[in-house]
């Protein structure tokens, strides 16, 4: 049994894409509609149709070797079952896109190890599935180093006078301070106001900026820990003041730099997709990071972008229109 989730402007289009990815006929799948398409306001918040297709006949690609190599890594995952299923999907997808011949099923007999090698080779860099831990660490280190060199375009000023700070932001700073204390993190919180953001709109002007040394563990892989910290701080502060507390949280300009890095990555991967005439898969990212990729490439006439996969494995694919 294989499963894919695909999106499209309408349900039919989403199903069609899924069938292509699975390389099966309509009668061989069960279709679940996960999200109906909807039109957003001012082009924001519009949602594509999202469907899940599950094959009813097990395809030949079910390889025990491959699955067991996945299981080794599930220890650090939260959803091992989902993980396995995702990986099988990837197998199917990888195969279908290989050599640009969607109908070609040759080579399916290869073992897990070989499969893995090919995959790394084909994807390279930040696009691999995240299975190989040392590769992943290497890539993370490279991205962090690259990040260091990026100049954030946003300009902020520290606001020290409490009277100038909205209640929600002040409560947010107190909440964050408590959270950090319980996490045994020694750092300073500076309340800042964003006064300029290059050519970009300032969505939320208030920033709780965590300053200190060696705060990498507050950021986490692809900013996961920082997102969690921001989510909980805003939730608790909002509950406290009984209305929405609006601020963002950053650690040593990480978000500001990461945004620029993601934009650069989006552009170069789009170029790669067009040049090679094939779909490029990015590494799994948080919803906010995926949004930055989609927004960056929205105006690009040569590619379309889609998110696929579930939960922590959800990632952006860049599809050239000339494919």
């Amino acid at each position: 049994m294989r499963t894919v989730e695909t999106s499209g402007a309408d349900i039919e289009e989403a199903i069609e894409k899924g069938l292509q990815l699975l390389d099966v006929a309509r009668e061989n799948v069960i279709v679940e509609i996960i999200e109906e398409p909807s039109r957003g306001v001012l082009g924001l918040g519009s949602k594509e149709a999202l469907v899940r297709l599950t094959t009813v006949v097990p395809p030949r690609s079910e390889r025990p070797q491959f699955v067991s190599s996945v299981e080794e890594t599930t220890q650090e995952r939260e959803e091992p079952r989902q993980e396995q299923r995702r990986d099988r999907d990837d197998g199917g997808r990888r195969q279908t896109y290989r050599d640009g011949d969607r109908g070609d099923r040759r080579g399916r007999g290869s073992g897990g190890r070989n499969f893995r090698g090919e995959r790394g080779d084909r994807r390279g860099g930040d696009q691999r599935g995240g299975r190989d831990r040392s590769d992943r660490r290497e890539e993370e280190r490279r991205l962090r180093e690259e990040l260091e060199k990026i100049e954030p375009r946003r300009v902020t000023v520290a606001v020290e006078n409490e009277d100038d700070i909205p209640e929600g932001v002040r409560v947010g700073a107190e909440t964050l301070s408590e959270l950090l204390e319980h996490m045994k993190v020694d750092a300073q919180i500076v309340v800042e106001r964003i006064v300029e953001n290059g050519a970009h709109e300032i969505e939320i002007p208030w920033l709780l900026h965590i300053r200190g040394d060696d705060l990498g563990r507050l950021i986490g892989r692809s900013g996961e820990t920082l997102s969690a910290l921001q989510y909980l701080t805003r939730l608790i502060a909002s509950r406290d003041i009984q209305s929405r507390a609006e601020f963002s949280i950053d650690v040593e300009d990480y978000r500001a730099k990461r945004e620029i890095q993601l934009e650069q990555m989006a552009r170069s991967k789009a170029e790669e997709a067009v040049q090679k005439s094939r779909t490029v898969y990015l590494a799994p990212m948080s919803p906010n990071e995926r949004r930055i990729i989609h927004m960056t490439l929205r105006e690009n006439p040569d590619v379309t972008t889609e998110s696929e996969g579930e939960g922590p494995r959800r990632r952006v694919t860049i599809i050239p229109k000339n494919q």
Binding site: L179, E224, T225, L232
Partner: peptide, 14 residues
């Protein structure tokens, strides 16, 4: 499950 997930992220970091 977002609250639980966020808490787990912080715990993992610790």
């Amino acid at each position: 499950g977002r609250v639980a997930q966020a808490l787990r992220s912080l715990l993992r970091s610790m």
